[in-house]
Amino acid sequence: MAATTGSATLLSKQLKNLQEDRSLSNISAGLINDNIYEWEVMLMIGDDCKFYGGGFFKAKLTFPTEYPLAPPKMKFITPIWHPNIYTDGNVCISILHPPEEDKYGYERVEERWLPIHTPTSILLSVMSMLSSPNDESPANVEAARQWRDDPAAFKRQVRKCVRDSAENCWD
């Protein structure tokens, strides 16, 4: 019980920080159904980001009640084509994996989740992951292969989802 209220207090504080931080104006965040454990975030990608610049990507962050001891899950709602994002939108990034989980041996323990991570640090990591995909442990194998072998086709596909995301972002 104490852990639950503690994580809720922490999350509401972090949400407030995220919403008020002027330097993070390209991220907007809100709650889904007033549930402090479910956030909806909109990532507005700047033009300096390779391929994905100009995209408006909506994603959902789901926090466990053990937060910040356990990592949240992140899932893109907007369709996005990226080597490290599953086709259903789930994000595969090492800092969102709990340290004990070592299924594939691709990631070093140093890159895993730490309780000192915040939603802000997660979102910044994801945004940097967009511009520099990691093809060692691809979540979307097809996209990773295309990114490596046929960058022109990869760029076309990404630009298409960027255009679609900008069109559909306010639906």
């Binding site: 001891l69 356990a70 709990p98 340290p99 004990e100 323990v109 140093e110 730490l114 309780p115 000192i116």
Partner: peptide
């Protein structure tokens, strides 16, 4: 309880 390392520098 989760991991016997320092949460900052492991």
């Amino acid at each position: 309880k989760n991991s016997e390392t320092c949460p900052i520098d492991r």
